Simulated scan of single mutants.
Amino acid sequence: MKLARFSIDGTTTIGVVQNNRVIELAHLLPGAPATIREVLAAGPELFQRIKAALSTQITGHALEDVRLEAPIPDAQKYMAIGMNYHDHAEEAARAGIAVPKNQLWFNKQVSCITGPFDPIYKPRVSDKMDYEAELGVVIGKQCRYVSEADARSVVAGYFVSNDVTARDWQFQSPTFTLGKSFDSHGPIGPWITTDDEVADPHDLQMRLWVNGELRQEQNTGKMIYNIWQQIHHLSQVMTLMPGDLIATGTCANVGIALGKFLLPGDVVRVEIDQLGHIENKVEAETAQDYVR
């Protein structure tokens, strides 16, 4: 099942994607939760009701007629792991960057989250804006002290992520958080693909293009620490909640390694087999972009 958040005719709602159409959840199940976080928290019983309703539901909106939004814009946490692919760790080592001996975690502040096809802004204060294709994981159950063996049972599903990074700000602080958290630097989507649709999340091909040039390509089986090890590790520290997001690391050929940083006008596309793709145009930040 693919859970999407989308806008049409000035209204934003959630729904289920099926056969290139998105069906509003409220039409499938009157009284259903209004957010994907709430759907995930409701658990398998609601999933089964949605699937049963889909078997008789044929209406909906064509995907081309809606605007897909960030599926979970209000996550409590967005955690990301650094240097978690063998080839990326090797390119970092060649650049003189020490490879961590343990899992290296940082926050992406949730205010960075943006939609799968929204612009990403080059900050006025950074000249080293970079891309990182990543497999995203969304938690489906409140949990703590999860064993590796049980970790998959707390996963609701997966999404495509670009861990956009301002490298000059990243290296100002050992936590990485500032360089990873600029507004708009967390595009996710295009929807949440539930775990039951993905036979093996450690056997998905991941690719990233900039302006049609293939920059990154790797199989998710090349992680140093797999998803279950990541969840086990994080859950020793904090309670994970439904809707929490995890970015599981990027592979080689990031912009800093190639000497190719993102500039206004660039278009970045990230694609993961079975999960879909996101595509974001880089725009120059102006004084008006973030007036709230």
Rank of each mutant, 00 (worst) to 15 (best):
Q218Y: 10
V16E: 04
A133L: 02
V110S: 07
M241H: 14
I192F: 02
Q288Y: 14
I14F: 12
S147Y: 11
I256H: 08
R21F: 12
D203P: 00
P33Y: 10
L54F: 04
V138F: 05
V66Q: 00
G265H: 08
W169M: 13
T165S: 15
P33R: 10
D87K: 04
E271L: 12
I58V: 14
T220R: 09
P116R: 13
A75W: 04
Q216Y: 08
C251M: 09
Q18A: 04
W209C: 09
N84S: 02
V66A: 05
V125E: 12
Y225F: 14
T250M: 04
G82N: 10
Q274W: 07
V110C: 08
H232C: 15
S173K: 13
V22L: 04
M241A: 11
P174F: 07
W228F: 11
P201N: 00
M206G: 06
Q216K: 01
A89M: 08
P44D: 06
A287V: 15
M83I: 14
V17D: 00
Y85M: 00
Y158E: 03
N102M: 12
W228E: 15
R292L: 15
G186T: 06
Q142R: 15
L178K: 14
A151G: 11
K77P: 01
T59M: 03
R152S: 10
A32Y: 11
G243W: 07
I36P: 05
V22C: 04
W228I: 01
D168I: 03
I72R: 05
A257V: 07
A34C: 12
Y121M: 10
E271I: 12
V270N: 11
N84G: 06
A4W: 09
K222G: 10
N253K: 05
A252I: 07
Y145G: 02
W169Q: 13
V270F: 13
Y290N: 15
D203A: 09
T35G: 09
K222W: 01
